[in-house]
């Protein structure tokens, strides 16, 4: 029973390129509906971890269970029905309408011609509405602001209707208001629709406020717990060199050390 509740279970995972791991002994497990951030310094392997979870690159060691099935055992199609991604790389063509972009999320479910059933169309419509895109549906992606485009990309992942959604730095290039908007929408998606959402971010303050769990990649122990537990254990204190930035446990924010 305990096993089934954990939709993502990562044990002893090592990620990296070639044969050299850039981050190893990563352990965490997430329940359905969990909203989880992966944080860490630049180059520590956050995106690499995310891409490894999505099978966009090979792992170097360890096990990954997705929806109680080892990632290796998933067929491409079953994997595409288990997890969806929002990547940092820009989409190739911005000549797509928002609706077409979101509709592409339905690909794993459509027949060889890609025809939509009424169910597909209602899922697409719901995704558009959830992310407040209904009025922008006919707009082309190149006409959107960064915040709108990011919302459209997340809506596409939602339309894929997978129990797990992975996002690589979903709020870069966005101002504070739009950062909070995206995070709040994601949190709603996780809690209301019971999606397990994992994202990498540099917004540690916001992650502490909003997430259920946080994975800190430090290249050594890689602690994983709820934000409060991590603060108690003092895990954020050692994240950056102390002489430059200091973590204030009371407010849960970083301060420049003057």
């Amino acid at each position: 029973m305990e096993e089934r509740k954990h939709i993502i279970k990562v044990a002893n995972l090592a990620v990296g390129y070639g044969s050299k791991p850039i981050c190893s002994s990563i352990n965490f497990s997430l329940e359905k509906g969990a909203f989880c951030a992966i944080i860490g310094a630049n180059g520590i392997g956050k995106s690499t971890l995310l891409r490894t979870l999505a099978k966009l690159q090979e792992r170097l060691d360890g096990t990954i269970f997705l929806d109680s099935l080892e990632q290796k055992v998933h067929s491409p199609n079953s994997l595409s029905k288990t997890l969806s991604v929002v990547l940092t790389e820009p989409i190739v063509t911005k000549n797509l309408s928002v609706k077409d972009l979101v509709a592409l999320g339905r690909q794993p479910f459509t027949n060889w011609l890609g025809q939509f059933t009424p169910e597909d169309i209602s899922v697409i419509q719901r995704s558009l509405e959830t992310f407040d895109l209904a009025t922008l549906a006919e707009r082309k992606c190149f006409e959107l602001s960064d915040g709108q485009l990011q919302r459209a990309l997340v809506a596409r992942a939602m339309a894929q209707d997978t129990p797990i959604i992975l996002l690589d730095e979903p709020t870069t290039h966005l101002d504070l208001y739009h950062k909070v908007q995206i995070f709040t929408l994601l949190k709603q998606l996780a809690h209301q629709h019971q999606k397990t959402i994992v994202f990498t971010t540099h917004e540690i303050d916001l992650a502490i406020q909003l997430c259920d769990n946080i994975v800190i990649l430090d290249g050594k122990t890689n602690p994983f717990a709820s934000p409060c537990q991590l603060i108690e254990k003092g895990c954020f204190d050692t994240l950056f060199p102390k002489e430059i930035v200091k973590f204030d446990a009371k407010t849960g924010t970083f301060k420049v050390n003057e």
């Binding site: 966009l56 491409p76 991604v85 990547l87 820009p90 190739v92 690909q107 060889w112």
Partner: peptide
């Protein structure tokens, strides 16, 4: 045609859609 549509997002996205 269906796979070409997925390619419009880039190869990694296409892969994540099961292509």
């Amino acid at each position: 045609a269906k796979n070409l549509n997925a390619f419009l997002l880039g190869e990694n996205y296409a892969k994540s859609l099961g292509v």
